[in-house]
Design a protein around this nucleic acid. Structure first.
Lengths: 158, 158
DNA sequence: TATTGTTATACTCTATAACTATA
DNA sequence: TATAGTTATAGAGTATAACAATA
């Protein structure tokens, strides 16, 4: 048998082919997110915030009076899983649970001054980190991002 | 006090503002992924495949002879968490663990004919589902996707 | 000494069911 | 009867440490 293409690809250079997987938008989105997420996480950790805490705080800052249910819907998470996050933000004096006279079942969530300032600072940090990461992406990673950009844009051309 | 903007935004229409959060690439990527993932998951479930099983199978099909460590690196997961996935693919006769004479520590993973066919069919299914979803995105979701496209493209303009 | 595959385990995230108090 | 917040719990997914076999 000759050295022609018999399906056993040459991987002696250590490169892994993911042609089929890489053609899927979901895979590319996940990969792109996985590049960014740890850095965003690290940036938020400087303010002792998790990604979910920051997301909640940010939505509360921009939507004063929002209820926990509404917040859960906005972030596409279960309201049961939101409770301890809100607890923590409240304990850190970043937000308040305000009683609503017209509906005593719900809380009106509002950010404190401290919460608003922390949100702004944290958002600034994450923005900076994201910009740095995208700038430092290597050839493969850039290709990945461009790939998902193109695919989604093609499908959106309507 | 008048009815002017005092920071308490009007949310009577039920719309939630996420201006700051929405300006972050990571958030947009995650949101976009969360739109696609459940549908891809459902499509793969028709072949009793999880996303991780399909990803592994797909990489093995395209890289015959790959080792578990290499596969773990390619998919950015721990090799310890890969073991049961590979076990399952092997039990379903979709791949083989082949002994490598020159290095008896590693296995050379190869897909069976059945595995290659299943991968092709599953990939086709996911592609179709992804296309449908992107087509059916509502105004908000499209705006989200365009947002991340623009942001990343701006940063990549080099 | 370092690496591959493996096991066990812990930790986080997410999902579900059920409860209470209100509407 | 339905909804908001809450609790408890189960299930994924992911991360870490340690081990045997081999390099």
């Amino acid at each position: 048998m000759s050295n022609q293409d018999d399906g056993a690809e040459d991987r002696s250079n250590g490169e892994i082919k993911d042609t089929v997987l890489g053609s899927l938008i979901g895979y590319q989105l996940k990969r792109a997110y996985m590049q960014i997420q740890p850095h965003a996480q690290a940036a938020l950790a400087e303010d002792s915030l998790r990604v979910v805490s920051f997301s909640c705080l940010s939505i509360i800052v921009d939507n004063p009076g929002i209820a926990q249910s509404e917040l859960a819907t906005a972030l596409q998470m279960e309201r049961s899983n939101l409770v301890i996050v809100i607890d923590e933000l409240e304990e850190r004096d970043l937000i308040n649970r305000n009683k609503v006279p017209t509906d005593r079942r719900r809380y009106a969530l509002t950010a404190t001054l401290r919460g608003r300032h922390l949100r702004d600072r944290a958002a600034e940090r994450v923005s900076r980190v994201e910009a740095e990461i995208v700038d430092r992406l290597n050839e493969d990673d850039r290709a990945r991002l461009m790939s998902v950009l193109e695919k989604v844009r093609d499908r959106l051309a309507s």
